[in-house]
Structure formats: C-alpha cells, structure tokens
Design a protein around this nucleic acid. Structure first.
Lengths: 171, 171
DNA sequence: GGCTAATAATTCACTGGTGAAGTATTAGGC
DNA sequence: GCCTAATACTTCACCAGTGAATTATTAGCC
C-alpha cells in the first residue's frame, strides 16, 4: 500500500485547479466526499489484510458478527442483507462459505418455508471470540490521532450524516 | 438501496451486545470504523449510479479527473496509481477504456520508453465540463445536514485521519 | 561496455460482487 | 378455494479489481 500524503495533497491541488476552471465547484463538499472514500478504502483494505490469514473478507466477517451479535444468534438472509447493505445474491454465497466452514447452520424456517434460518454454531462463536480481541490494540491505535472529544465529534457527525443520507429521510 | 437507519441502529445494538460479551471492546472505535465504511459505501454506490448513464464508474471518472486537474493535462499510469490508490493492472484496463472512448491518448514517453504518457484530449475535457456542473446541487444537498462549521470540522478530522493512517507516518 | 537488478507496464487466471432470470412458497382479492 | 402478485432465496452470466508472472526498458556496478 502506497503512502496517503501525496493522495491528499494531490486531492487539494486538483480541486483547486478544477475550481479555477469550472465555476460553482463546491470545494468543501468534494474534499469531504473524497477524503471519506479515501480513508474508508484504506481502512477496509487494511482490515481485510488482517482477516486474510483466517480466510475471511470483511463481508464474511460482518455477516458472522451480525449473527454473533444478534439477540438469538440467528437471523435470515434477507434481514442480514438489509442490515449489511448486501445483495441477496452475495449473501447466498457468503452464507454458503460460512456454512461450509461450520460457523453457521442453515435450515428452512417452519413458519414460512421460503425463509432460511441462519444460526451461528458454537464453533462460529468460538471463532469470533478468538479472532476479535487481538484486533483491539491496532484498532485503538488507528484512532490514536484523535482526542476523546474528537472521536466523539467524529462519531456524532458520521452518525448524523448516515441518517441524513438515508433515502427514506429525503426521497 | 435500502434504508440506513436500521443499519445504524443494529450497529449500535450489536456493538453493545458484543461488548457485554467480550471484554475490552473499543466501542467508540468500532462504531467509528463501521460508520465510516457505511457512509462511504453509500456515497460510492450513489455516485456510481449517477455515473452509470455515462457508462462510467468512479475509478474511470477519478482517473479522468486526475488527468483533467493535472498541471499539464498529462501523467503516467504509475503516477495515477499512486494518487488513486489503484493497482497497475486495473489502471491498464481503465486507461484502455478511456482511450477507446477518445478521452485520453497514450504514447510512449521519449525520455523513458518504459513509461506511457497519458494525456487528456479536448473531447475528454469537454466531457468533464459537461458532466460536472449538473452534479453540484445534489452533492451540496448531501452535506446539507451540516453547518459550515461542522463541514469544516469533519474535513479537518478526516484529513488528519488520512494522514495518520499513512503507513509512512507510522510504520 | 556488459551483466544484474530495478522499474513500467501489460497479460492472465482468479475472486468478490452484481443484475436478471428462475424456483419455491405465501398472501391477497374475488 | 383458486388465481395472480408478491416475497425469499438461488442460479447464472457477467464486470471490476487483484496477485503473480511476463515483457520491455533503464540504472547501477564492476
């Protein structure tokens, strides 16, 4: 992975140059969206590199975590799709993999035989409890550049942003 | 695209449940990284949907914009890779597409015949000037939930974050 | 000057994710 | 009760992005 500083510098220079060329460029907004995409992409790659030794990517991991953190340890593909912003096609593939590794089970729901009931297994829970804690120090380090106040501010702003982006809120 | 509010709610609930289950979970950091990934992914999908009528995705667009906003309107694949956090393989494919559409030209550099010189064409510049302005209002609307101060704060925090994540800064 | 190592770009085989179509099941109107 | 529409999931064919190997060229060392 290459260095980010040149990217950030080039971004600011590029936006300035375009703004001097095309009228009405919303500079701050362009910078915000690009910085957001850049940091997110960096975090995601980094995280996936960390999961790779366990033969997992972020989608697999998130899906497993959603089951782990669900009230009953169970859910359905469509529910997970909604919460993970995933397409059903992909969820089928992911749950296939997780099931093959013995981390989850898939059974047809009795009350509605169209639905598939996904349930995390003891092995799956064990895997999560093994996997997570070693990741904490590095995660904390990632945000070490922020004061507690700044972390809270960032969280508040991002949460507000997510809810504002919600299509249900502004159709 | 489904609604984001359930995702955000489930995220907060899930993190709480996991934290009650596994000791030492850095709750704020987990929320931050997940909110960041969620908003970024939403923005990206949204933006790509907007580019689709023009047969473009964000990578293509960003590559074209980097050339548009570069000092000379030209660059090389490896330089663009570094600034766009892209792999050379993919850059070859992207520049192939852009060249096929007549938006850029590719010539071998004279001073170093290993390099390829990419240059935006008049047609490419024209395309950018047509494409950009109609996107401004919607982009501004996306960030309308923030005050000017909040936008500046978010930009400052994200920039700081990007530079902190830089592997060169913390090896 | 010639040999080795490094660099720039490309090709190829593969993975992850998507849209569109298909299958099974349930819900709703009459 | 039956027919149509809707829902839940799956399958299939395809696109975008990646790592590993390849080719072409240059740089550096002796």
């Amino acid at each position: 992975m290459s260095s980010l500083k040149p990217c950030v510098d080039a971004l600011y220079e590029g936006v300035d140059r375009v703004a001097g060329n095309i009228p009405g460029v919303p500079k701050c907004e362009v910078l915000l969206i690009r910085l957001l995409l850049l940091t997110a992409e960096t975090l995601r790659r980094d995280f996936e590199a960390k999961l790779k030794p366990f033969d997992m990517n972020d989608s697999d991991f998130r899906t497993l975590m959603m089951l782990y953190s669900s009230a009953e340890g169970s859910s359905t593909p469509s529910e997970l799709c909604a919460l993970a912003e995933q397409k059903p096609t992909n969820m089928t593939r992911i749950t296939n993999l997780l099931a093959k590794r013995g981390f989850i089970t898939r059974t047809h729901a009795v009350h509605d035989r169209r639905q598939v009931e996904l349930k995390i297994t003891a092995e799956g829970s064990h895997f999560v409890r093994q996997l997570l804690p070693p990741m904490f120090p590095e995660l904390i380090e990632k945000f070490a550049c922020f004061s507690t106040t700044e972390r809270k501010t960032l969280e508040r702003l991002l949460k507000k942003f997510a809810l504002h982006l919600d299509p249900a809120e502004s159709p």
